[in-house]
């Protein structure tokens, strides 16, 4: 098993992602965590969620990085650590071709992450969805409302401790 892992960590994708991380680590120091070089999705974590916007802007505009394309932004629940988080999959589309994933975490109750909707416009709806499903707030988001569930829906459905409401506008919800 050890051997295969060593081999897979030599994948060009992982090497590229590590180079990206090195640039960011140099620029932002302690705000960026250590690099996780797994072969399936190499990622690093932003340890100071309020600096995420700066990092994102740098990632998009720095000529060395040019992350022009946000493929995905997913909300995640970490019930054991009492945290919520997002995972962003970024890519330099058509320019440099490298990919990396970024994780940002915040407190479970009243947690705030800075919004990157102004950096990548696609993040606007993804963040609304994460808010809808998990309930973390994105600061400076242009239009933070629920997107999939109705406005007056109770609770955040994808949290691990979610209990479905009994009725919605007089209609029975559970089976």
């Amino acid at each position: 098993m050890g051997e295969t892992q060593e081999n897979t960590s030599q994948l060009p994708e992982v090497i590229e992602a590590k180079a990206v991380w090195a640039v960011l680590k140099e620029k932002f120091g302690d705000a960026v965590s250590e690099f996780d070089e797994n072969p399936t999705m190499p990622f690093f974590e932003v340890l100071e969620p309020e600096r995420w916007l700066d990092i994102a802007l740098f990632m998009r505009d720095s000529p060395k990085l040019r992350f022009t394309y946000m493929a995905c932004l997913s909300g995640v629940d970490y019930p054991e650590e009492k945290k919520l988080g997002i995972v962003c999959n970024l890519e330099s589309l058509g320019e440099l071709g490298h990919k990396i994933a970024v994780k940002v975490r915040c407190e479970r109750e009243g947690g705030v992450i800075s919004s990157v909707a102004r950096v990548w416009k696609t993040a606007e709806w993804h963040e609304r969805e994460a808010f809808d499903m998990y309930g973390m707030t994105f600061s400076n988001h242009p239009d933070l409302r629920r997107i999939l569930c109705p406005e007056d829906w109770e609770g955040y459905p994808l949290r691990k401790d979610y209990e479905v409401q009994e009725t919605y506008h007089g209609i029975k919800v559970p089976e």
Binding site: L148, C149, P157, Y162, V164, I171, K172, V173, P174, E175
Partner: peptide
């Protein structure tokens, strides 16, 4: 399916 109506005959 928390958001799915379980049968349209409920309404």
């Amino acid at each position: 399916g928390y958001h799915v109506l379980k049968g349209v005959d409920r309404i």
